[in-house]
Design a protein around this nucleic acid. Sequence first.
DNA 1: GCGATCAGCT
DNA 2: CACAGCTGATCGC
Length: 655
Amino acid sequence: MSSFAGRMKEYPTISLDRFDRENLHARAYFLSHCHKDHMKGLKGPLLKRKLKFSLTVKLYCSFVTKELLLSNPRYGFWEDHIVALELDSPTHISLIDETTGESEDVVVTLLPAGHCPGSVMFLFEGSRGTVLYTGDFRLAIGDAARMEHLHSGDRVKDIQSVYLDSTFFNSKYHQIPSREACLTGITQLVRDWICRSAYHVVWLNCKAAYGYEYLFTNLGQEFSSPIHVNNLDMFKKMPEILCHMTTNRATQIHACRHPKDEMFFRASRLPCGSTAPDGTPLNIISIKPSTIWFGERSKKTSVVVKMGSSSYRACFSFHSSYSEVKDFMSYICPVNIYPSVIPLGQTLEDVVELLKPLSRSRSEGEDVVYKPLGTLKRTRKRCTSEGSDSDGDLFDEVATAPRRRKMPVTDVTKVAAYTQPHSPRKDSPDKDQMNILPEPRPSTQPSNYIDCTESNDDDDDDDELSNIMPHPSGAASPCTEMPCPPPTSNSDTTPSKAAPPRWENFFRADPVLTDESELDNSQTQSTENTSQSPERFLEDEDDGCHMTSSQSTHISDEVTDSSSQIDMVLVQVDDSKAVTSDQETNGLLQGGTCKPGEVASDVIGSCNEPKSDSQVSSDFELPPTPGSKVPEPEELKELYRKLAAGQEVVKRKIF
DNA sequence: GCGATCAGCT
DNA sequence: CACAGCTGATCGC
């Protein structure tokens, strides 16, 4: 959470992302994005009164932020005082003191921040130097080099100060998998689940905040099925978002909310109350996007980790990792870096100390080398990174920014994707800014997918699945192509592949349950229907869990090597890895073939029961799932025969 | 009645 | 482990 007080040393007459206290006297306001912790005081009565009598005080933000802000009527009084600016378009602003008439000019440029729809950074240029206020951001490594307005000609601008989103500037978050990698993992889990039957639904447990639209729109696109959310009013002018989301509950992917949604989920209900009209209980998994949870893991994990029988954590970050921040700051190498977020468990001093090596600010003990011919040069020992200066600039002027090769601006799509993918055109800034859809990276699609490689599950409770899964042996998902098969009343049959689903025939739009007794009732019923043991609820909350390893590594806690910036590869399972190392170690595949109804793959780690560090074989000694199909001796025999012959025993999905 | 602040909760 | 909120209680105006 931002603890930025609102003002920058260099330009104290403007306020950013804070609108209370001293900021009430600002000459101009800037809002980087529409998250509440950056809007403190924005609807305060004092500010409202000030606006009423002011002709010059404005709020500057992106077009999307303006739209999102004004979709909340409580901010309606800002309407005539908001100036929406295009991305990457330097704009001259006069900062006028209305009492004295005194004026100061600055040029501000909005840079895409990749944090949530409409989020931007503000670059200010004026008589007191060039400063960058980052707001909250998620940029990938190398993105800064592609940002035109951080450069002047071929060189990086000389930036005096950066007011930095340091949320994850901590070695715990040294590496966070890329947006694409996280998306791939989540997509795969969703695919595995919703393709089992029409009654298999996914609940994305996302906190109510802008920032998940990237996930929603990509999933919506991937499965040609819109995501159910409570409200879409704020996106009414953003067709690219709108077309992948819906307020119609008859869909398989949900991101709806309810004040007691976790309780609903534990009762096998969706927050919206949607049910199948024929009374068939829905099989719901929850996916909770998290970053901090992953950062707390001492071992590397997959991008998606199974928590309980039907709940998953998926890595997902709105903020840049340590490496990404480091890359960004090393590249622009400002004189000062002021953190605007103090991560939990750290002090301001900790963060400042960590940031010092990335800035040009003079620190104690740092030598100042005087140049015989006039200007002085500071040692550059710390302000280096790849492509840094060679000896050639030994006599650089003090004010010279570090020399960095600007990248061709041909690959800005990824940088701008989250907020605005293209350089805005003058004729339709709105439309441009609302296009937040990045192109998914096809290269990260798995080439081989093992439906079931982890049998080290908790589960004693996936009955609902075993009743429904068409392939008790845990073989490949029936869904091998999109769109998903239509729902069938007999879920034990493999659905036909061609026809698109007709959800209206299978879902009933019941009013959302609010009555406790009704909820309790539904819970009872649901429990009966699905044979879920009460223990499951405990497991879901179990935090004493232990990661299983998988091929896909994750947040790395190594701070030593900044060169290893490779995104964690998610789902690349080659044939030789058709059996997980766990299984191999355990000489497995007896009871270790996939349990019916299991969603598991090399991408998905599991985290449901406390296990020993060595990931003991007791993983596979769990009692069989009640109601599941125990392999017949003939089947086992056949399995052993295939194993002995080196044949495939697990079906793979080929993409 | 409203806003600010905090505890508690996801 | 909670990234960004929400609700409810309390207090002051």
